[in-house]
Write a protein that binds this DNA or RNA. Structure first.
Lengths: 216, 216
DNA sequence: GCGTTCAACACTGCATGCAGATAGCGTCGA
DNA sequence: TCGACGCTATCTGCATGCAGTGTTGAACGC
């Protein structure tokens, strides 16, 4: 096997899965793009087996969709499904915010504060790309602090599909407003009140969900 | 291809996936059981390819776990992970109860009432197996009424893993208490108050989660 | 009797062959 | 000009080959 990817420690199929996943999430592979197994095998200079394995996994987590005897393509995420994703995200973000507060450690406060400080500057400067990164990082920090593997995994899945879907829409929740919401979540977590933290996180996502609904 | 399964309309790998999934959930395949691809291929009289596909999907949804170069085995779900599953389930069941209430239709009330009536009888008679079925059916009915594909799928995944984990524990929430909780959820949904429905559903799962925590 | 070494076995993971199905495209007829 | 038909290229999905690796168990030394 001669791979163009230098990942010996891992399985080829695993590397392919992560690579394709990244390309879908980053938008390099747009929704509707056919995931032809032979074509991908040739591109990566591997056989079709590990490619097939990777595609199966992408389909299993709804980042790709397949038709009988027609193979898979990058998932097209409808507006209705995006709303559904946000319905899930609302309660999941609420849950991790609550758990992170219950298991509060000083390190969380420090990292959130650092992210928030930079985010405020970035939002005022209008750097949209960096805003997206910091927004994701803020939520990721909280869900890692919640130490709930099941919730984390679910949110990862939701988040990746949201990113795919968002690329098809021009909608944004507003960078400054996002910083404002995050500030409220940060304060609620810092105050040690799990209920308040859950409520703040839910309100944040709920607001975005309603924006999506209204944009129909 | 000569399959012992009479499913021509579907792919062999799809049928195998569902079959193995059922066997894991039903307990026929116990946690820790090796999922040897050649052995399963021979058992089902198919080649290793579709078996491999099925196992990959089981691993992807955490019903099986694999080690490098050692293949997969049926997932062993720890007590800690079971608690994590219930943390997720708590908010997810809350969310679908709220959505089902918002989208309330008369058919839901009828089906829930029918289930509840039988469940009450069954609980008093102490029929544990039927209790499990009715409990699952009650929650399934609500999440279908919520019409949120993302939430439904997540709950399906949680539920299947909970069933696997529960088989390893002697813990039960109490049949009569379950009926009591379900009655409260039913009434909250019927009253048309989404907040109350969410709270009732969360309280139900929360109680079970605390039982699990206490049983350490 | 007990720990160590080694050899046979079984399986994983990647590669590849192949029949059937599908889509795309050009040809033909009207 | 336009639509129906059929052909070809490509792909999917299942089968199978094979090298490398982990495991098991038996022979061996102590």
């Amino acid at each position: 096997m001669t791979s163009s990817l230098q990942a010996d420690p891992q399985r080829v199929g695993e590397v392919l899965y992560k690579t394709l996943r990244d390309r879908i999430i980053s938008g390099e592979l747009r929704p509707g793009t056919r995931l032809s197994v032979p074509a991908l095998a040739e591109e990566f200079r591997v056989s079709r087996s590990p490619v097939r394995d990777a595609v199966i996994r992408l389909v299993q987590e709804n980042l790709a969709a397949e038709t009988m005897n027609r193979g898979a393509e990058v998932a097209r995420i409808s507006r209705a499904e995006l709303v559904s994703l946000y319905e899930a995200r609302e309660v999941l973000e609420g849950a991790v915010a609550r758990l992170a507060t219950e298991k509060y450690e000083a390190a969380l406060r420090r990292s959130l504060l650092a992210l928030l400080t930079e985010h405020r500057t970035v939002a005022e400067q209008g750097d949209f790309a960096r805003h997206i990164e910091l927004d994701a990082a803020f939520h990721r920090e909280i869900r890692q602090a919640a130490k709930s593997p099941v919730l984390s995994r679910m949110l990862d899945g939701v988040q990746s599909r949201v990113l795919v879907a968002m690329r098809s829409t021009s909608l944004t929740g507003g960078m400054v407003q996002a910083v404002h919401d995050h500030q409220a979540i940060f304060e609620a977590i810092g105050s040690g009140d799990p209920e308040a933290a859950e409520e703040a996180a839910r309100a944040h996502i709920h607001r975005l969900k309603e924006l999506l609904r209204a944009a129909d």
